[in-house]
Simulated scan of single mutants.
Amino acid sequence: MNLPISGQQIKTEKSNRTAMMEFVLLGFSDTPQLQWTLFGIFSSIYLIILMCNSIIILITNIDPALQTPMYFFVGNFSFLEICYETITISRMLVDLCTQKGNISFFACAAQMYFVLMLGGMECLLLTLMAYDRYVAICNPLHYALVTNHKVCTQLVAACWISVIPIVIGQTYQIFSLPFCGSNRINHFFCDICPVLMLVCGDTFANKIGVYVAVVVFLMIPFLLITVSYGKLISNILKLTSAIGRANGFSTCSSHLIVVVLFYGSASITYLQPKTNQSEGIGKLLSLFCTVLTPTLNPITYTLRNKDITVSLRKLQTKLVA
């Protein structure tokens, strides 16, 4: 027997459907008096990230001295950093400028997809960079053969091929869930955990899927990097020459600092139990992972890397001449 549908039921269904078609990113709306100050700060940070990473990409492509596997990976990593920050910070700047956080359902899904894809790629690329340093120091006679340009290109392509379908499946699974009630995301971009908090019903299976993805793209690469650097450091310490040991540590120190910053911030953000932190703390940690770490990465590579420093001086000389 079909029961008559009341006007209130129809209105409720329309309201729920509307909430599903649009989200509101709260961002920093709780501090309206700081909106323009934050806009200025994050605009400056975004420009620094764009400028530094663009310079790294430029010099690794035009300087013959930097046409090596190591700097091929560094250039790719800088490209990923630019894309990641464009997806996250540029959206945050628009919301700070307009003081509106409205984002459509599909735009939110697209943003989450690109954030997960680029984050996963950075994890895998850091692993490739650790492997490159391991071969260069522990197996130098075969370095040119094992890490030639063709092999490096194939490795990067394999990373893309492995990340894209998994991220598509993860994003589709989350945004296929029913959303109801509040459509306000207490975050400055569409991240997994804040979005899942708006889902109706049981999200246990989805959270397990998220943790599995984190283990695959965060913990396993980190373990591989740890093993690589364990063997690498062991080989460096066996060198009898103090100069040789210094050169060995200098070669891998920049990458090691970037790894510690990246994995440290990402682990705290995504692996810490959410019951142990407030939404504000989670947003602050995510801000550190999204803004501060990418700002430090190119600075680390330029200040602690002699090859890039020399290349920058040569570029500066050409521009001034």
Score class of each variant (00 low, 15 high):
K238R: 13
P294E: 02
I103L: 01
S15V: 09
T12I: 09
A130Y: 02
A144G: 04
L155Q: 04
V320Y: 07
Q154V: 14
T290V: 14
G7S: 10
A107N: 01
V146D: 04
V167Q: 00
T60I: 01
I62K: 12
T309C: 14
T98M: 08
V212W: 05
S254L: 03
I168Y: 01
S54M: 12
S250T: 12
S286Y: 05
T293N: 06
S278L: 05
Q33D: 13
M129S: 03
L66E: 10
I243L: 13
I268T: 09
M117R: 07
N139L: 09
L271N: 10
N76P: 04
I208M: 13
L292F: 14
F39R: 01
N16K: 13
V210Q: 06
A19S: 11
T86C: 01
K314F: 11
P178N: 10
T127M: 08
T127Q: 11
T147Y: 03
L232H: 11
M92V: 07
I185E: 00
F39L: 06
S250W: 09
T88S: 01
I299L: 10
Y211P: 04
L261I: 15
N148C: 13
R184A: 04
C138H: 00
C200A: 08
V260Y: 00
C252E: 11
I185H: 00
L34C: 11
L50A: 15
D63W: 03
Q170H: 03
Y134F: 02
L312Q: 15
T31M: 13
F262G: 03
L124C: 15
V156K: 13
P194E: 00
L96G: 05
V258L: 03
M112L: 09
Q8C: 15
H142I: 10
M197S: 11
G264L: 01
G7E: 05
L3W: 15
C200G: 07
R91G: 00
S278P: 06
G201D: 03
R17G: 02
E22A: 15
R17P: 05
P298H: 15
L319W: 03
I208E: 15
I161R: 04
I82E: 07
F222M: 06
I59H: 11
V199Y: 01
